[in-house]
Simulated scan of single mutants.
Amino acid sequence: MAAASGVSRATVSFVLNDDPHQTISAATRDRVKEAARSLGYVPHGVARALREGTSRVVVLNIEAGLEGHYSRTYIDGLDAELAAHGYVLLVRHGHHTAEGTQQVLDTIAPRAVIRFGDTYLTGQELNDSGGGWRDGLAAHTALQIRHLVHSGHTRIALALSDRDSPLVATRIRFSGLAADNLRIPRPESVVIPTDRTACADAVAEYLTRQPEVTAIAGFNDDVALRVLLALHDLGRRVPDDVAVIGFDDNGYGAFSNPALTTIYVDAESHGRLSARLSLDLGAGNLRPPPARVVVRQSA
C-alpha cells in the first residue's frame, strides 16, 4: 500500500489509524485511502488490538429506566463521533456490576467504558466541564422549576419514578438548589407507582397531606403522564387545580389530555463530547444547544 500510494509505511499507518497527533495533507490522505480501496484493504481488528493494547470498541453502560429522547440523541452523537474516528460503539443496557464490566474489559479490551450521563450530571463539582449549570442536568432541572415559578407556583412537588435510577439523588439536589435560587420552598418528593390505582392513591395521599402544593414536576415524561392520569382519576383539573410539567420530551405528551408541558433537551453534542473525551481528543468547540420548555396545556 505504501508503494502504491508513493509514501512511507509510517505515513500509511498514520492515515489508516487517523492519528490525531500527525499533520498529513489532505492530498496525501486521499492518495493513501484510494490505494487502500483499490487493493481491497480491510483492517484486522484483532491484530490492531494486539498492537495498540485496546480494541477499536468503546462501551457505553446505560442503566434501565433512562431511555428517552435524551438517551436517543446522546447515543446518536456518541456513535457518530466515534465512527468519525474509526471506533465502534457497543451499548450495554440494564444493571451493570463491577464483575460484568470487568468481563467486558477482559474479553474485548475496549478503548473506554463510558457511564451514560457522566458529562451531563456535573454541577459545581467539575467546574461545569460537562455542562452542569450551563447546559447540563443542573441547568435543565432549574429550567423546569423556573417555568412553574414564573407561572405563579411557589409550592412544588417533585414526582419520582418507582424504579431505581442513578439520577434520582442528583435531580432532588438540583431541584432543591434551583428552589433556593428562586427563593421558594424546596420541592418535596413523591414516588409515583406504575400501577394505575396505586398511582392515584399515592397522588391523592400526597395532595391531602400537602394541600398547598399547586404544581408537580415529573422526573421524566413517563412519570408526569402517570400523574396526569392520576389527577384525571381523582377529578382534579389540570392545570387549574394542579399544574404538571414533564422532563425529556418523549413525544407521547403531545397526545395526552391535556397535552403535557415538558423540557426538551437535544443531547447529540453531549454524546459527541463523551466520545472525544474517551479518545483523549479534548472538547474542541462543542457546545450543546440550550434546552427549551415545550409549552402545552398542562402547565
Rank of each mutant, 00 (worst) to 15 (best):
A3P: 02
G6Q: 07
G6F: 07
G6V: 05
V7C: 05
R9V: 07
R9T: 09
V15D: 03
D19M: 13
H21D: 15
A27C: 04
A27G: 04
R31K: 12
R31S: 07
E34C: 05
E34S: 08
A35R: 01
S38L: 14
G40C: 10
Y41C: 06
V42P: 01
V46T: 15
A49Q: 10
L50V: 14
S55R: 00
E63I: 07
E67I: 15
E67M: 13
H69M: 13
Y70P: 00
Y70S: 01
Y70K: 02
Y74Q: 01
I75A: 12
G77W: 02
L78S: 06
D79R: 10
D79H: 11
E81C: 00
E81P: 00
L82S: 05
L82Y: 00
H85C: 06
G86F: 09
Y87E: 12
Y87F: 14
V88L: 13
L89N: 02
L90K: 09
G94S: 08
H96P: 03
T97R: 07
T97S: 13
A98V: 14
A98T: 11
A98P: 10
T101D: 08
L105R: 13
I108G: 01
A109M: 12
P110V: 03
A112M: 02
R115L: 06
F116N: 04
D118L: 11
T119I: 10
Y120Q: 07
G123S: 04
G123P: 05
G123N: 02
Q124F: 12
L126N: 11
G130N: 10
G131F: 02
W133L: 08
G136N: 03
A138E: 03
A139I: 03
T141L: 08
T141E: 06
A142H: 09
R146M: 10
L148G: 02
V149F: 03
G152V: 10
G152I: 10
R155T: 04
L158W: 04
A159T: 11
S165R: 05
V168A: 09
V168C: 07
A169D: 15
T170E: 09
R171Y: 08
F174Y: 05
G176A: 05
G176H: 04
A179R: 05
E188H: 12
S189L: 07
V191P: 04
D195T: 15
R196V: 10
T197N: 15
C199I: 07
D201S: 11
D201F: 02
T208C: 14
R209S: 10
Q210L: 10
Q210E: 10
T214N: 02
A215L: 05
A215W: 01
A217P: 02
N220E: 06
D222H: 11
V223L: 06
A224H: 00
A224S: 04
D233Y: 03
D233L: 05
L234I: 09
V238M: 15
P239H: 08
D241E: 11
V242D: 01
A243D: 04
G246I: 01
G251E: 12
G253T: 07
S256F: 12
N257C: 12
L260G: 07
L260N: 08
T261N: 14
T262Y: 12
I263V: 15
E268M: 03
H270Q: 02
H270M: 00
R272M: 08
R276A: 04
S278I: 03
L279P: 03
N285W: 08
P288V: 00
A291R: 00
A291S: 07
R292V: 09
V293S: 03
V293N: 02
V295N: 15
Q297Y: 13
S298G: 14
A299T: 09
